[in-house]
Amino acid sequence: MGIVFYAWVHRVGLPSGRTKRLLLTLLLVLPLVTAAIPGRSDLAFAERVAWFNSARLADVPLGAGVYLYHVAWFLAGLLIVLAIWQEVLPSFRHPRSAQADLPEWLLPQVRERSGWERCGVAVSPLSSIMLATGGWPGRPRLIVSCGALVSLSAADLSLAIAHEHAHWIQGRWWKSHLLFLARLIQCYHPTALWAFREYCVEEEIACDAVSVAGRDPAPLVRILLRIYQETDPRDVAARSALRKRVDVLMNGGPRDNALPAATIAVAAGLMLLVLPWIV
């Protein structure tokens, strides 16, 4: 189904925005719903009723006692290790930070934002531009790097903080964390990996749009380009996401209603209709 959505999104040239986020959400959640259908995992269903039984493909011999399912297991194992290394471990590894180096003017600027009245702020010793948030709703925490404090003007810093703040409004924190859970349940699945990463980029794009709403996007573009220059060229994924964010900002921002609700409903219905028959 991932292939279907990928091909469709490219075919209709779906721009970044709410529609794309909704489709990615469906792609992450609906397989969990159809997987829970009773009897779907039975051998009799797989062999006699299902449209496609992946176990047949997995049992194809490759020679020397190796079967295709050995390759599938290896790839699934690799994806699980990748998910733990790139997604789970970083959440425990917070950037080193200290409250003491905090500039006096920063805290009021952060806490004046709705929902951030009790937000903790810390400074990371990193020399590159870095802003990140952590914590829980009701007790958020903003981390600003020394590099960001030194090299960003007050207006640019306010813009970057507005972007981080956007992650905590309109239910974005809950949505992204619930989807992260759906992604972890399917941590062995390449489609889930792709869909969640795409969703994260789309979230960044949405937060960019909130932070520059009613303003000139050029300052944020400049900040993103500076971060792009500071990013290790080997970090292809991060650089690609930054390029995409810049492209969207330069082209007038995301389009939230790129497809009518009825079309999305049909896509979801089609997915619910098709997925149970593929085991």
Binding site: R11, A44, A46, A55, R56, V60, P61, L270
Partner: peptide, 29 residues
């Protein structure tokens, strides 16, 4: 969307049916 779904489903069905013809031991049950 319907065209892409039908194409992918068609390919999957061909794979589902043809694999046991080439590798009979892959047939389950």
């Amino acid at each position: 969307l319907l065209l892409i779904t039908a194409s992918v489903m068609g390919v999957l069905r061909v794979v589902h049916v043809s694999i046991p013809m080439v590798f009979p031991q892959t047939r389950q049950g």
